[in-house]
Computed example of a mutant assay.
Amino acid sequence: MPQPAPRPERPFTLGEVFDDEGALSWQERALCAQTDPEAFFPEKGGSTREAKRVCVSCEVRAECLEYALAHDERFGIWGGLSERERRKLKRRAI
């Protein structure tokens, strides 16, 4: 099993996340790839409304959320959920 990459000093943008083959096919279809990435990584206390509105209609929302949960993403909106919402979801799953 491959080891996780070291954590960057800044959060990845969605366009910078790659798997062993060099790309994520679901990511190429993600609506966020056509949107300002700043919306998905708001400042602390900033609004997540714009990012979540994009996620609601995204065809790869489930894949995005699955990726974030599997890779313990700690920053940003992934699959329509904030970091706090993803933590709650993981706690309920245990």
Rank of each mutant, 00 (worst) to 15 (best):
M1K: 11
M1S: 11
M1I: 09
A5W: 00
P6L: 07
R7V: 04
R7L: 03
R7H: 09
E9N: 02
E9K: 01
P11E: 01
F12M: 12
E16C: 07
E16L: 04
V17M: 09
V17W: 10
G22Y: 14
S25H: 05
W26E: 00
Q27K: 03
Q27W: 05
E28Q: 10
A30P: 07
C32M: 08
C32H: 02
T35W: 05
P37R: 08
E38Q: 15
E38M: 09
A39N: 13
A39Q: 11
P42V: 01
E43D: 11
K44E: 09
G45R: 15
G45L: 13
R49A: 03
E50D: 10
A51T: 06
A51D: 03
K52I: 06
V56W: 08
V56A: 15
V56Q: 06
C58A: 12
C58K: 11
C58D: 01
R61K: 13
R61I: 13
A62F: 05
E63Q: 05
E63R: 02
L65V: 09
E66L: 12
Y67E: 00
A68Y: 06
A70F: 06
A70Y: 06
H71K: 09
D72L: 05
E73C: 05
R74C: 10
R74A: 11
F75S: 15
F75C: 03
F75V: 07
F75Y: 12
G76H: 07
I77G: 00
W78S: 00
G79Q: 03
G80R: 04
L81P: 01
S82P: 01
E83Y: 11
R84K: 11
R84V: 14
R84C: 05
E85R: 07
E85A: 12
R86H: 11
R86L: 00
R87L: 08
K88P: 04
L89M: 09
L89P: 09
K90P: 03
R91S: 06
R92T: 01
A93G: 07
A93M: 02
